[in-house]
Write a protein that binds this DNA or RNA. Structure first.
Lengths: 118, 118
DNA sequence: CGGTATCCCGACGGATACTG
DNA sequence: CAGTATCCGTCGGGATACCG
């Protein structure tokens, strides 16, 4: 870190990771980008997440103002999760990561092909 | 996950996180964005990282082709780390995360100000 | 349905001492 | 200088059972 300016910059990145870090936050946001979802829908979407992890992640995301939780007093209860306006601002981040991820996948596949060629 | 298309999309994000996840990968890349750095420079930049963690992160980043390690047979040894062309492709991702992080920081500060007012 | 409670495990990462 | 070796804590997260 050469100077204070730079420190602030990298701190912004670290701060962001505090909030969207962890195994499931990003996938959850990604899933909610398309439409609001109910708890069970999310559990299905995020193939393999445990109820505990899902609940934790949702709670933290809500606390940080990224998602909204709406409960309806139906029987049985209905709960809907959706991105807040603020949460939607993460879309560009998500898209850029995704784009890079695709590139990377392509690269890996190409490498495997080249190896098998000899 | 509604369909296969969507699965691939989210998988790209997860793949990306496999590579740039962890506590220090992003800060390291960020630091190397500016210029190549030596091991000790990185250790100073990443205030508080342990030699073990730094070495591990560097090794993984190198394995994934994001950074390059150049050793010179000086006495004592000189080692330089730099981003590969491929690693540089992460810059947009970094910038978008950083931008969001700054927004978030601003939001938090504003909220604190409002609390102390009310 | 939408969670909580409990138990448990392994990986990540810190601290420190040491080495080619 | 640029790491490695060792030891150890903790914390995210899985599995499962249960609850309002």
């Amino acid at each position: 870190m050469k100077n204070k300016e730079e420190f602030i910059e990298i701190q912004a990145v670290l701060d962001a990771f505090e909030i969207i870090g962890g195994k499931w936050k990003f996938p959850i946001i990604y899933s909610l980008c398309q439409s609001k979802k109910r708890y069970n829908e999310l559990q299905t979407d995020l193939n393999g997440i445990s109820p505990r992890s899902l609940a934790n992640a949702l709670k933290e995301l809500e606390m940080n103002g990224l998602i909204k939780r709406d409960a309806f007093a139906t029987v049985p209860v209905t709960v809907e999760y959706s991105l807040t306006k603020y949460g939607k601002e993460l879309k560009p981040v998500l898209l850029s990561i995704q784009e890079w991820g695709k590139k990377h996948r392509k690269k890996i596949i190409d490498e495997i092909k080249n190896e098998s060629k000899g």
